[in-house]
Computed example of a mutant assay.
Amino acid sequence: MRIDPLSLKLFVAIVEQGSIAAAAQSNHIASAAVSKRISELEAALRTPLLSRTNKGVSPTPAGMALLHLARRLLVDLDDIAVQMRDWSGGTRGQVRVFANISAITQFLPREIGDFLARYPEVDVHLQERISSAVIKAVLDNEADVGICVASVPPPGIEVLPYHDDELVLIVPRGHALARRRRMRFADALDHDVVGLHTGSSINQQLARASLEAGRPLRLRIQVTSYDALARMVEAGLGIGVMPKAVAQPLARSLGIVVIRLDEDWTRRQLTICVRSYEALPAAARLLVDHLRS
């Protein structure tokens, strides 16, 4: 049995307005077409729904039962339309975000928090990855949005500017370099280095800088967070490099000193990576717009 929602809508209008002609006029349908739909509905349900008299029509007992069911069903159908409109407009949905540790530590907690306060029906699934893995996840459609350092993005990736950050050197208080306010990274290569996990963009940059200086990078320990890196440096296990915006608050609570590096590569741009901004789901596009604003 197939019941057309329009037929139910017309049936409700007939009962509420007391005549087929009035229901037809309010719905801009010919009276004969309305009457035919009601006859087909009665045939499908195998029971009379309307009592027809010279004064108009009134629902039969079966018609009264259908009236309550139809009203509830039509409200549910309207709710489906409203909710789907919310999804198409981006106010509902899910966004998969992969980001590197710099973006997660410095910017995303506040920015995603503000976004979710504005769009509480959107779910943001955030995962930390190194920059190269972020780009691969976007290419493989494992992530809708990627945030990382991508100076030369591969084909198939659209890059949008996000935030600038600056890398600085951190050393323990009392270290031989602790009195320096600024220096070249090459001058720090006599010391052991505490690095981030393998493949991180900062580790790769340190390796390139040491290669250009013709000096080995004495990478002694690798950790998975900036807090762990700072604590290893505080303990005297080496020096480290991290974003200035992360290092300065840590220096106020830990026994480390922040030193500016006179290197062009220390000024970085974090970028938002997508396959295509125009092809993003509505919720993901809303998030990208929010992050860029």
Rank of each mutant, 00 (worst) to 15 (best):
I3M: 03
D4H: 09
P5F: 05
L6F: 05
S7P: 02
L10D: 02
I20T: 15
A21V: 12
A21H: 06
A21F: 03
A21W: 03
Q25Y: 06
S26Y: 04
E40F: 01
R46H: 09
L49I: 00
L50S: 13
R52S: 08
N54L: 15
G56I: 12
G56R: 10
S58K: 14
P61D: 14
G63M: 02
L66W: 05
L67R: 11
R71G: 13
L74M: 11
L77P: 06
D79H: 08
I80M: 10
V82N: 05
Q83M: 11
M84L: 11
S88L: 08
R92V: 13
A99G: 07
A103Q: 07
F107G: 00
I112A: 01
G113F: 02
A117P: 00
P120C: 10
V124P: 03
H125D: 11
H125M: 14
S131G: 07
A133T: 12
K136R: 13
L139H: 06
G146T: 04
G146Y: 02
C148N: 05
V149E: 09
V152Y: 13
P154F: 02
L160W: 04
D165N: 10
L167E: 03
R173C: 06
A176M: 06
A176I: 14
R180I: 04
R180N: 05
R181P: 01
R184W: 03
R184Q: 08
F185L: 12
D187I: 12
V194H: 01
S200W: 02
S201E: 14
Q204C: 13
L206I: 03
L211V: 09
L211T: 12
G214H: 09
R215M: 15
R215F: 10
I221D: 04
V223L: 03
Y226Q: 01
L229R: 00
V233A: 03
V233Y: 05
E234S: 06
A235R: 10
A245E: 11
A247M: 11
L250W: 06
I256N: 02
V257H: 14
V257F: 05
I259Q: 02
R260V: 10
D262Q: 10
R268P: 05
I272K: 00
I272W: 02
V274F: 04
R275G: 08
R275Y: 02
Y277V: 07
A279D: 15
L280M: 08
A284M: 09
V288D: 12
V288Q: 08
L291K: 00
R292N: 06
